[in-house]
């Protein structure tokens, strides 16, 4: 049964046993391995068809009505600059939220990363349980954390900060333990052999090896967190997202434009600064 199906698939993809058999002039025989590419393409087409169907994608409708999208953009082309004064406070909240969230997340990530690195932690049970918990933490989007936390702590910046801290903790721990697993432990052993204590050896042999990437990853998290922080207001977790929600609902695209420009400037500045610093670090 399985064999028959296999033969049928080979035939359907024009790769019969015969067509894959080669006889060289000096008598050698070569068998070309079966190529899965046609099958993968077919599977992707099937998945696309299902996805297309369930999402009601309709390109004709898209092209006929795309002007609505550009109309909104056109209205954004005339920002109402006076809105800046109103938006400045929440923008600063957003920056503080993502800074503090990144900092707390980064501090928490450090010990957990050592606990999940297979060259530091030898206990299999500890290793797999911390790693699994980390991937659980990473599954939920930061907005979902913010939504839950703003119900627990009440609406406001605090819930957003904690949400960002959790999110940062999740991704940074993973980046960090993958980095720790690549470091060279022989220096640690050598220093321990000179009679230094374990913590002393750790500080002199391991910390310098991971410190640059740790700082670099932390900066990177801060960089991406600003974007996430900007939407947390939608679930009441403070920051500029509240204004986005409000102004979009009132279709005040001229105000939304001011918000986007402010966000652009902040994101661009932080990204450039962070990229410069990260380049210096590595």
């Amino acid at each position: 049964m399985v064999n028959k199906l296999k033969l049928w698939i080979e035939k359907a993809t024009f790769q019969t046993q015969d067509s894959r058999q080669f006889y060289l002039s000096n008598g050698k025989e070569v068998k070309q391995p079966y190529s899965y590419t046609p099958l993968i393409i077919f599977a992707l087409l099937v998945v696309s068809a299902f996805a297309w169907n369930v999402t009601n994608v309709n390109l004709i409708r898209m092209f006929l009505r795309i002007e609505n999208f550009f109309n909104v953009l056109l209205r954004m082309a005339e920002p109402r600059w006076s809105y800046f004064d109103r938006a400045l406070g929440p923008m600063i909240d957003t920056i503080q939220m993502s800074f503090l969230g990144s900092l707390i997340g980064a501090l928490l990530a450090l010990p957990v990363a050592f606990l999940s690195a297979n060259n530091i932690t030898k206990n299999k049970a500890v290793l797999s349980s911390t790693r699994f918990s980390l991937s659980l933490v990473r599954t939920l989007p930061v907005l979902v954390y913010a939504a839950i936390l703003s119900l627990v702590f009440g609406f406001g910046v605090f819930a957003g900060t904690v949400a960002i801290a959790i999110f940062t903790f999740g991704i940074l721990s993973k980046m960090l333990y993958e980095n720790i697993e690549t470091i060279d432990l022989s220096a640690y052993i050598a220093i321990e052999a000179t009679g230094a204590t374990k913590s002393r050896a750790f500080l002199t042999a391991i910390v310098p090896q991971i410190l640059p990437s740790y700082l670099s990853f932390s900066l990177y998290s801060f960089e991406i967190n600003i974007r996430y922080a900007a939407i947390l207001g939608y679930v009441g977790a403070g920051g500029i997202g509240l204004l986005f929600d409000d102004r979009m609902a009132w279709r005040r695209y001229d105000d939304v434009a001011v918000l986007i420009i402010m966000l652009f400037v902040v994101v661009f500045t932080i990204e450039s600064l962070s990229r410069y610093l990260r380049r210096r670090l590595t």
Binding site: V57, N58, I66, F69, R227, G241, D245, M248, I260
Partner: peptide, 21 residues
């Protein structure tokens, strides 16, 4: 990249109507 996803979402709803599209 600066456009937050929700803003893009609301802009596209004006084109496609609400829903997965």
């Amino acid at each position: 990249r600066t456009f937050p996803v929700f803003i893009l979402g609301l802009m596209f709803i004006r084109v496609t109507g609400p829903g997965p599209f």
